[in-house]
């Protein structure tokens, strides 16, 4: 079922115009939340917060601080949204937030353009193994 009136949740892995949620929903209200629990637990310095702030200011986002899940849900309510759209996070912390948001409201996750698309999950564990499979595919895109 498509969302008719979503909000976009922008997290700290996708603060750029390639964010697929912003691209696909350019008119939807969008939010970035400074995650206070993470900032305090990790003793995150002002440098990092300032960098994130400057990245966020160049996007059409509302900025908040606090509990990410509560803030996203409150933002959705504020805009009468029927769901939330975001970009696929890697960080397990963000994935836990996504799961919690999805318990309250439908959450759509969009993936952006990959660096390399592998036909099957690579054998990880050591870079050399991964790169043996990935490198030729990455270079297929080069037209020298």
């Amino acid at each position: 079922m498509d969302l008719t009136n979503p909000v976009v949740w922008v997290h700290e892995e996708a603060l750029g115009p390639a964010n697929p949620a912003l691209q696909d929903h350019p008119k939807a209200p969008a939010l970035f939340v400074f995650d206070q629990a993470w900032i305090e637990a990790q003793n995150i310095s002002r440098k990092r917060l300032g960098f994130l702030y400057e990245c966020a200011l160049e996007l059409p986002l509302t900025l908040r601080k606090g509990d990410v899940v509560q803030e996203v849900l409150a933002f959705a309510k504020r805009h009468g949204a029927d769901g939330v759209v975001t970009s696929g996070p890697v960080d397990p912390r963000l994935n836990r937030y996504a799961t919690r948001i999805n318990r309250e409201l439908p959450l759509w996750i969009l993936d952006g353009d990959p660096f390399v698309e592998l036909p099957r999950p690579p054998r990880l564990g050591r870079f050399s193994r991964y790169w043996r499979e990935a490198e030729p595919l990455v270079w297929e895109g080069f037209r020298g």
Binding site: A18, P26, A30, T62, R64, A98, D111, D113
Partner: peptide, 26 residues
């Protein structure tokens, strides 16, 4: 949580501003 496949984006269009009415906590 549905994960959607997207078309690839060759040209990144500038994202238009979508301001949200202000709230005291913003």
């Amino acid at each position: 949580m549905p994960r959607q496949d997207r078309r690839s984006v060759d040209q990144l269009a500038p994202v238009p501003a979508a301001p949200s009415p202000p709230d005291p906590g913003d």
